[in-house]
Design a protein around this nucleic acid. Sequence first.
DNA 1: CCCTGCCGCTTCGGAAATCGAATCATCTCA
DNA 2: TGAGATGATTCGATTTCCGAAGCGGCAGGG
Lengths: 95, 95
Amino acid sequence: MAALDLFGRRWNLRVVWELQHGPVGFRDLRQRCDNMSSSVLRQRLTELLDAQLVVQQPDAAYTLTDLGRGVYQALRPLARWSDAWASALGKDGKD
Amino acid sequence: MAALDLFGRRWNLRVVWELQHGPVGFRDLRQRCDNMSSSVLRQRLTELLDAQLVVQQPDAAYTLTDLGRGVYQALRPLARWSDAWASALGKDGKD
DNA sequence: CCCTGCCGCTTCGGAAATCGAATCATCTCA
DNA sequence: TGAGATGATTCGATTTCCGAAGCGGCAGGG
């Protein structure tokens, strides 16, 4: 249940999601995340570092740990579902 | 990506998760969700009703739609991962 | 050396989300 | 009628988030 708490915070899911592409620097990561607030990004990264989902390389770039890659794997069904969700809303939700 | 936005809100993941057990009334649901704020629960339910993940039965109890059950299915890998996560933190994180 | 530019990161004031307790209207049962 | 439960709403206080400015460090060029 701690997972639902960790990922219930505003950018954590997104940060892990964006980190899939490999090591990314702070400013790059911020841009990938829709230019989210740098203060919040730092806070989220601290949480993810603490949760051992992310590590910081010697060159200061952030990257997923094995654990973090596991999250990404576990997130893929959700991504697949979101497609079904989008098409379901598109079909009968005439807004 | 809209999914990451919807589920990036504070209790949405948890509410869907708790709704898996079947139709639940407002107050019961609130208790299951760690006695979250009733105002926020109402807000989240409105969002989930709007997203067609949840419907309200004639007796006013809330329950998942097919779409909502799909989310729960998509969430199960994440739940399985969280076990691995917990044991990984338990092994080398001596706190 | 000094200037410019990029980097990770921090600070801070205002805005927005969340909390939590009180409250309302309704329904049921005695 | 009166007590108790329900779904739902309101509102002030607290927490979180935002976003822009700025810090120190580290290159490269003049």
